[in-house]
């Protein structure tokens, strides 16, 4: 149980890190600390607090939180290695560790190379994957997952029961689409196309932009992506609620996902209408992560029957 709670803490801190990263890009502070891994020549953790001014507050705070998250993931990986009986879960810990190390290196490279678009987009994309890994680890350590959400006798009796294949496929497709949409958002963000279409819900007063360039195309693709994702989320959650409304482990993330998508679209609109106000803009980034994470939880829970009821009580008893 303790390991599960710790994994939850790691996942939460990763979300905080994504918000802090959003603040860095939203305030244009990415290069306010020109060196890495030092900060103006200081060792990162000894940088004087009174020098945290202007853009440095965002960039240096992001680095401190990132270091903390990295350290927490090291602990999580070691803890899993020492205490987790399922080899595939231990492997998830190693992958999370490798991902967060890579993420740190990408963060450094993007500063030293003056924020090249490709590296910055990769940094944003990998951040979401690290978040997704920490959420997955927390989920598979949860008591609910371990008990396979207390399947009824009837379900247990059906040895070949593999869950609802429609829900599994549509939820997986939705999660993948959300990630693609996040990458489109990161591309828009790092190519400075966030206000390429300055009005909302229309584009230059029309449904389709009357003029086109690369930035307008990227921006419009993100809007179209939002429509597709929203449709997929409605289809997935509608299916889950209609067919599995009594199963709390599917009902709760479905309702949450619907609410988060509504909030996310609102934040996206406000980002444009406010001229990219930095708090709204950053909330849009972290809510995107929350949408992704919630959809992932729904997908994994939908797939839970496909995982073996592997030696649950005996093995898990000593794990946490």
């Amino acid at each position: 149980m303790l390991l599960y709670l710790f994994a939850l803490l790691v996942a939460t801190s990763t979300a905080v890190l994504i918000f802090a990263g959003g603040l860095v890009t939203s305030t244009g502070s990415g290069l306010s600390v020109p060196d890495w891994p030092t900060t103006y020549g200081w060792f990162m953790f000894t940088f004087p607090l009174d020098k945290m001014v202007g853009g440095i507050r965002y960039e240096h705070t992001h680095r401190l939180i990132a270091s903390t998250v990295g350290f927490l993931i090291v602990i999580l990986a070691v803890w899993l290695w020492r205490a987790e009986p399922r080899a595939w879960v231990r492997r998830m810990g190693y992958v999370a560790l490798a991902a967060v190390v890579t993420q740190g290196i990408l963060g450094g490279i993007t500063v030293l190379w003056y924020l090249p678009d490709l590296v910055s987009i990769a940094h944003a994309g990998l951040a979401q994957l690290v978040f997704c890994l920490t959420i997955s680890i927390a989920l598979v350590l949860s008591p609910g997952w371990k008990s396979a959400y207390e399947p009824s006798r009837a379900v247990k009796a059906r040895a070949a029961y593999n869950g609802d294949p429609v829900l599994q496929r549509i939820a997986l497709a939705t999660t993948i689409l959300i990630y693609v949409q996040i990458l489109a958002g990161a591309t828009m963000r790092h190519t400075d196309a966030g206000l390429a279409i300055p009005d909302f819900p229309f584009a230059f007063g029309r449904l389709i932009p009357p003029v086109w360039d690369a930035k307008i195309a990227i921006h419009f693709a993100h809007r179209v992506g939002a429509l597709i994702v929203a449709s997929m989320v409605i289809a997935t959650t509608g299916h889950a609620l209609y067919h599995h409304g009594r199963r709390g482990e599917l009902r709760r993330p479905s309702i949450l996902l619907l609410a988060l998508v509504a909030v996310q679209i609102t934040l996206g609109a406000l980002t444009v209408l406010s001229g990219k106000q930095f708090i709204i803009n950053s909330l849009h980034v972290v809510t995107g992560a929350a949408v992704f994470g919630t959809s992932l939880v729904l997908t994994l829970r939908a797939h839970r029957p496909r995982f073996a009821f592997d030696a649950a009580p005996r093995a898990y008893g000593s794990a946490a």
Binding site: D35, P37, G41, L97, G104, G108
Partner: peptide, 17 residues
């Protein structure tokens, strides 16, 4: 191996230009 990479990442790096 992963921890070694993590430590090297922290120890090395570009430093101030």
């Amino acid at each position: 191996a992963a921890m070694t990479v993590a430590l090297l990442t922290a120890a090395c790096g570009g430093g101030q230009p």
